[in-house]
Amino acid sequence: MAQSGFDRRRINGPEESFAPLYEDEEAQDQWKVGRLRLGRNPDNIRPIFLQPGLIDQANGSAYIETGNTKIACAIYGPRQSKNVAFHDKGRLNVELKFTPFSCPKRRAPIRDAEDRSIAMAIHQAILPSVRLETLPKATIDIFITVIEADGIEGCIASGSIAASAALIDAGIEVFGLVASTSAAIVGDDVWLDPTHEEASNSKGTFVLSCMPALGTLTSLWQNGVITPTELITCMDTCEKQCAEMHAVVAQTLRETVTVS
């Protein structure tokens, strides 16, 4: 990958370097469009591991792993807003960073458009759940680091769950826990929680975030070609999955977070 210029704040490598090229195609039997899903059923998600409170420097934190996707999230705040005019509502900042080794191709440590669009998606997913009106003049900073990514949709979904769990770990008032599920339309089927490869071979992708405890949706993200009927099926399957996930996340939080 070409490096864009010289950055004197970092240790620099050569001006240009490229990811290795392989002469032979991947030896494994590759999945092709039209075949059955490898490894799991269309409505199965990858196993989730969630651990709240790993980062002791932060007010609240959570680490989530779904398959190969590994995301750490830390919350600082509510703390005083700096350099901003008076607000009678609190502010919620979401910042997301990919580690340089998180993707098949190295990411130079520069903020790009993808970081921001995922951060915005997560912001939208959790914003309706936070009681910002109780925190005038304050800022809540949510920092998310993607240690390893497998599918952008999965990053948004796992990131939202981690952020919501971390908010609760930080003891910040919320209306409800946010659960989030991603899906892809592959052929005529709805495949939940697609990997990077599955999502790039799909017609369209979809991320649904909701608060199952209140029965309300907080955000929907849809990309690509999806017919209205498919979209409704998609929403139904995702919502059911979110409800299941909500129970598991709530149980984990009950076991680990101590009320003080």
């Binding site: 970092r10 420097q57 932060a58 600082y76 580690t99 440590p109 920092f143």
Partner: peptide, 21 residues
Amino acid sequence: FLVPNLDLPAMCSPRFKPGPP
């Protein structure tokens, strides 16, 4: 070439701010 870099992102401590190293 061996190119080592350490990132101290804002998430790891309240001491650090987001932005360049």
